[in-house]
Design a protein around this nucleic acid. Structure first.
Length: 257
DNA sequence: ATGGCTCTCGCGGAGAGA
């Protein structure tokens, strides 16, 4: 089974680009974030023509998450309980009774001084609390976590410590989630590699190798033990056939499931 | 030095992203 996460930065503006990627990589399950699309404008038919069913938690203008899959699927959860005011940021699906698949778009926080920052921490606490209610041996939570786990994951290394995305408080929240028995599948596979998943659109950041790794696939023990490989698909951060890429690369993992 | 791109909403330019 090939599973993936991708912050697409505007689904409707990215449709043709997403199609190229789906055809090139042929994933079985994709968690998408930042749809910026209301549910009633979601292009279900576009994905059906490509062989994918979409489970969608959308909203107008901002946020929004969805699961695409070409396997049997059932919606399990739409929205993080208690956090509806902070936007459409979580969706969970059962995939073929083999995998419970959750994708999230964690709040940004903007800066450590901004009022959104403490709310980001609170949102993470709610996510941790919600995650503990589950009882599933095979489960994944993937998405755009908006936290840089370690200096290795930032182009600025330790210089960035303390800035938003790089604070001890944010890293502690991510660790709290991991402590429920989750493994960062990319880091498990490549303990010392520096590969980013996001690059700023401005100033040639991609070509200057100025990025962050903030998009993860986290798996339970049974999933982490079933990993064949994990790829941060940076080719698809580049323009494809004249089409503009998202500022995030897709990340995918192949599982023996 | 200046938020230096890209998206949405909606028709001008502001807000958000990270």
């Amino acid at each position: 089974m090939r599973i993936a996460t991708w912050n697409v930065n505007g689904l409707r503006a990215r449709l043709d680009f997403i199609k190229l990627w789906l055809q090139a990589r042929q994933p079985n399950v994709v968690g998408m974030q930042e749809l910026k699309t209301p549910e009633d404008e979601f292009p279900y038919d576009f994905f059906a023509d490509l062989g994918y069913r979409a489970l969608v938690h959308g909203q107008k203008s901002w946020n929004g998450v969805a699961v695409l899959t070409n396997l049997d699927s059932e919606l399990r959860q739409s929205g993080l309980p208690g956090e509806a005011d902070w936007g459409a940021r979580l969706i969970t699906a059962d995939i073929d009774s083999r995998l419970e698949f959750t994708t999230v778009y964690c709040p940004n926080g903007k800066s450590t001084e901004h009022e959104d920052y403490p709310n980001k921490l609170t949102w993470y606490d709610s996510l941790h609390s919600h995650w503990q209610t589950g009882d599933h041996s095979h489960r994944v939570i993937c998405g755009d976590f908006n936290v840089v786990p370690a200096p290795l994951d930032s182009w600025r290394g330790e210089q960035a410590d303390g800035d938003v995305f790089h604070t001890e408080a944010e890293r502690a929240r991510l660790q709290q989630l991991l402590s429920t028995g989750l493994t960062d599948l990319y880091r498990q596979q490549y303990p010392d590699a520096q590969t980013f998943s996001w690059w700023d659109y401005r100033g040639g950041a991609f070509h200057r190798k100025q990025g962050l790794r903030i998009d993860f696939i986290l798996g339970s023990e049974a999933v982490a033990g079933a990993v064949e490989d994990v790829v941060i698909d940076r080719d698809f951060r580049k323009k494809q056939e004249g089409l503009t890429a998202s500022d995030h690369a897709p990340v995918y993992a192949d599982l023996r499931l």
